[in-house]
């Protein structure tokens, strides 16, 4: 997508009807790892096409919450639904039937995920990384997937790196390939798990710029991040988590300028003050 394209999408987003795909409803979700209670009754609704940033100290359950959305983590109690259908289960009468692997994989093709450590397939080139899932999971033809893959690499600014292996790319470039890989399935929801935490400071912006552009594309974005400035600029909703619970959520203006809760205030003061003033 060029700059001109992104402007037209901004236009359509504000003028045309709101996106209808990509509603995430998380209801009273609990999750424990052994004796560690990581999520304690989390409920959150993410509107279609919106951008939600999840903030919080490490160990607060942000990443786990994100991973319940595409069923990489199975919830112990509560449920997650996408566009009204349950993630990982099927409702039949009064009981919930666990989905088979095949159906879970199908659900996941609608949800892209970008990891902190990129997790690019090291033995495949950038293009092969992007092409793999559309061919295998969506049954696209190789030619079609390649064409679309090159288009996506172009869009994240790596059109000339299609034949490069991940280890021949910088961290920022790897993460952009990973974003292209997630986009290749045309997901309605994109999950970002601390996408810039493993990057050198000077490489952070090239990745954030790509995400910023996606924010206007009508895809629902859920971003776990430590980049406060980015969250403030891009997110529609900011969610603050601590100790497995959502402490508060609201617009960036509300959360950053006027946090209601003491815990939020404490966290933000520790992180933001040296960086910029609000």
């Amino acid at each position: 997508m060029t700059l001109a394209d992104s402007q037209t999408t901004v236009l359509t987003r504000t003028t045309a009807v709101a996106p209808t795909r990509g509603l995430v409803e998380i209801t009273a979700v609990h999750k424990s790892f052994g004796s560690l209670h990581v999520l304690r009754g989390v409920s959150l609704t993410v509107e279609p096409g919106s951008v939600t940033a999840i903030l919080g100290p490490s160990g607060s359950g942000k990443s786990t919450l994100l991973r319940t959305i595409n069923h990489l983590e199975k919830v112990d109690a509560g449920y997650v639904a996408i566009d009204g259908s349950l993630v990982g289960y099927r409702k039949r009468g009064n009981s919930l039937h666990e989905l088979r692997e095949k159906d879970i994989l199908k659900q996941r093709t609608g949800i892209g995920m970008v990891f902190q450590n990129f997790n690019l397939f090291g033995h495949l080139t950038a293009l092969e990384n992007v092409v793999e899932a559309p061919v295998v999971a969506q049954g696209k033809t190789k030619a079609e997937a390649r064409r679309r893959g090159l288009e996506l690499l172009e869009r994240v600014g790596l059109g000339d790196k299609a034949g490069a292996y991940p280890r021949q790319l910088s961290g920022g470039q790897q993460q952009r390939v990973a974003i292209a890989r997630a986009l290749a399935l045309d997901p309605k929801i994109l999950l970002f798990d601390e996408p810039t935490s493993a990057l050198d400071p000077e490489l952070v912006n090239e990745v954030l710029d790509v995400i910023r552009e996606l924010a206007t594309s009508g895809t629902t974005l859920v971003i776990v991040t430590h980049e406060m400035g980015f969250a403030r600029d891009v997110a529609d909703t900011v969610v603050f988590m601590d100790q497995g619970q959502i402490v508060e959520s609201g617009t960036p203006a509300e959360i950053f300028a006027n946090p209601r809760e003491e815990r939020t205030r404490g966290f933000l003061s520790k992180i933001i003050e040296p960086a910029f003033n609000i």
Binding site: L72, L105, R108, M113, N119, G122, A133, V136, A137, L185
Partner: peptide, 16 residues
């Protein structure tokens, strides 16, 4: 092989 590789593949809907 790093566990993250399997996780990424699963997240992309690639069969077992």
């Amino acid at each position: 092989v790093d566990q993250g590789q399997l996780e990424a593949a699963a997240a992309l809907g690639i069969p077992a």
